[in-house]
């Protein structure tokens, strides 16, 4: 049976760790915390993932908790979303001492910024907030960011935003129990679908490697898999909006997590789903087509492995698979105990 083996425990944050994010190409991890800092961690030797060091501490950019952190696709910039309502953009000064400095601050949200995400091309940045809105920013030259659109269709806090892995298509998850899909029609952003089915706050979402499925994690203690069906799909699934695909729930994972699920990560390297939350457990699942003759219509979720008390008795707020095959078996987690842990999937 596959299992998760803990490789390293990284300590240094002085408050709960909210989010852990891998650099897109290097064995570097960024984590953020209630201690208002971001820490950058690097494996001292890529061959020995049990030894890590904190290479940078990003301080002073935010006055309140840093809720989320995201690398730009080229790995040159970091974005931070804070309870102080702003988004920070950080860059590493390669010439000087290798410190990160805050090169831009994006203002506009009325209160806590909860999540930020860069589009696949790096041309767009999305932010979301307790003010119920999602903002789309265009990344311009000289660290300039122009707000293209303010999307206000959620009726409650927006907890997370995630971009499709290849298309300019955004998903947002909310305290209003729904997920919304946003698209661009000649710089005019609109909501193309609303995914209803969760019975409480949707805390996290992630796209499948193909981009045709989304996994969502909720306070209702379930995970759901949603699949996109284009107009004229061979299965005859009705697409109510002219020309628009429709997203349908094809699987629900219930009875696995015993409390709120805060984070979910769909591995782009091997397709396993990792989830974690307030029940102190990291769980791994595989999504298998239950009807191979009709791919994706009915998905069966198989529990693959678990790590109980992965952060002792603390909530786990974040799990993240390493984004590429180089170290595809690595998983990072962050918890209320203030620690960051690196795990390896052992087959």
């Amino acid at each position: 049976m596959p299992r998760l083996e803990q490789l390293a425990e990284l300590t240094g944050h002085e408050d709960r760790v909210w989010c852990a994010t891998w650099h897109p190409t290097k064995p570097i991890l960024a984590t953020c915390s209630g201690d208002k800092t971001v820490r950058i961690w690097q494996a001292t030797n890529a061959q020995d993932p049990s030894k890590w060091q904190c290479t940078n501490v990003l301080e002073g950019g935010h006055k309140r908790t840093i809720r989320s952190v995201a690398w730009s696709p080229d790995g040159r910039q970091l974005a931070t979303g804070s309870f102080d309502a702003t988004t920070g953009i950080w860059e590493r000064d390669e010439d000087e001492n290798g410190d990160y400095e805050c090169v831009a601050t994006l203002e506009g949200h009325e209160n806590e910024t909860k999540s930020i995400a860069w589009s696949n091309s790096g041309a767009l940045l999305a932010t979301c907030s307790r003010d119920k809105s999602v903002w789309i920013w265009e990344v311009e030259e000289d660290n300039d960011f122009e707000c293209l659109s303010v999307l206000q269709e959620h009726t409650q806090d927006v907890k997370m935003v995630a971009w499709h892995p290849t298309e300019e298509l955004l998903a947002s998850a909310s305290y209003d129990d729904t997920i919304k899909i946003w698209k661009d029609d000649d710089d005019d952003w609109y909501c193309s679908d609303t995914l209803q089915g969760h019975e409480s706050t949707v805390w996290a979402i992630d796209f499948a490697p193909s981009g045709d499925q989304i996994v969502s994690a909720s306070a209702d203690q379930t995970l759901k898999i949603w699949k996109r069906f284009p107009p004229g799909n061979p299965l005859g699934i009705v697409t109510p909006r002219r020309g628009e695909p429709v997203w349908k729930c094809v699987a629900t994972v219930a009875g696995q997590h015993e409390r709120c699920i805060y984070s979910v990560s769909w591995s782009k390297a091997h397709g396993l789903i990792a989830s974690a939350g307030a029940d102190n457990t990291i769980r791994l699942f595989e999504a298998i087509d239950a009807r191979p003759e009709a791919p994706g219509v009915l998905v069966e979720i198989v529990a693959v492995a678990e790590a109980k008390e992965a952060h002792g008795t603390s909530d786990i707020n974040s799990v993240a698979w390493y984004p590429s095959e180089t170290h595809g078996d690595w998983l990072a987690s962050g918890g209320d105990d203030g620690s960051v842990r690196i795990w390896r999937l052992v087959q």
Partner: peptide, 15 residues
């Protein structure tokens, strides 16, 4: 009840 048990809202309220 939903608000009281949302840890993110509680954390933000305490700041």
């Amino acid at each position: 009840n939903k608000q009281l048990n949302d840890k993110e809202r509680v954390a933000a309220a305490l700041e």
